[in-house]
Amino acid sequence: MKKEHNHMKNKKFGMCIDLDKCTGCGSCMVACMSENNVPFREDETDKRKSITWITVYKITNNRPFPDTEVCYMPRPCMHCEGHDGHSPCVSVCPATATDYDMATGIVSQIYTRCFGCRYCMGACPYHARYFNWWDPVWPAEMEKYLSPDVSPRMRGVVEKCNFCYSRYQRALDKAYCEGRSDIEEDEYQTACTQGCPAGAITFGDLNNKSHAVYKLKKSPNAFRLLERLGTNPKVYYLSSKEWVRKAGDNYIKGENPKNIKKSHH
């Protein structure tokens, strides 16, 4: 078969989220749930048991009234590359249920392989991984809206954002049928990117100079979460506010974020 296709250049899908634009409306979370067959329960107010692959954090500058400032921070899976693909979660999974794909830069989670040890959840500092504490139940006739592109998860396994990989698959299929071997930037966008009313999320190949994310990640306002840990995430944030950029990492009192050498990859 066609070996030449297989040396397609490695992609590195990533995201840039403009926090100045993000309004905290929550559409990304719901778009994701709807796209990815995420179940819901009667009481979802225990946020530590509530599955939302992308979660919008509300962060504040912790200053008293009226100097209080608030910023919303949507947090999908960061798809950490770590060092050579050894993201915090991938290397700890005992059953190889989660993996880093060098061809896409996407951290996969295979629900049918996972047996629910939850070690990966402990390893992830972003809390991007969710456990199915309950059997998924869709009341009334809601099973009808389930998408066949994403398999519903059984209880007792971990799940997380996969950058809507099923959309990538569909885009590729279309390209193949049209005789192309690769896709355009706009053919593969995640559900949260597409749904965001503010246009705050940009998604694309971080390796591809023609993609919007390539430029955005180099903005002086760009930062990533917990870069100092060496997780090497693929989600970039943009904020014009210094306190927001500083909240992305931990600093010892007196440390100047600008002087910190962050592990760069």
Binding site: M1, D99, A103, T104
Partner: peptide, 21 residues
């Protein structure tokens, strides 16, 4: 045999999501 891809960090085979959803 056919693709020779070894992009998976764990298995040195094709990525898991290539065949899983």
């Amino acid at each position: 045999e056919e693709t020779g891809r070894k992009s998976s960090v764990q298995t040195e085979k094709d990525g898991c999501l290539v065949c899983h959803k």
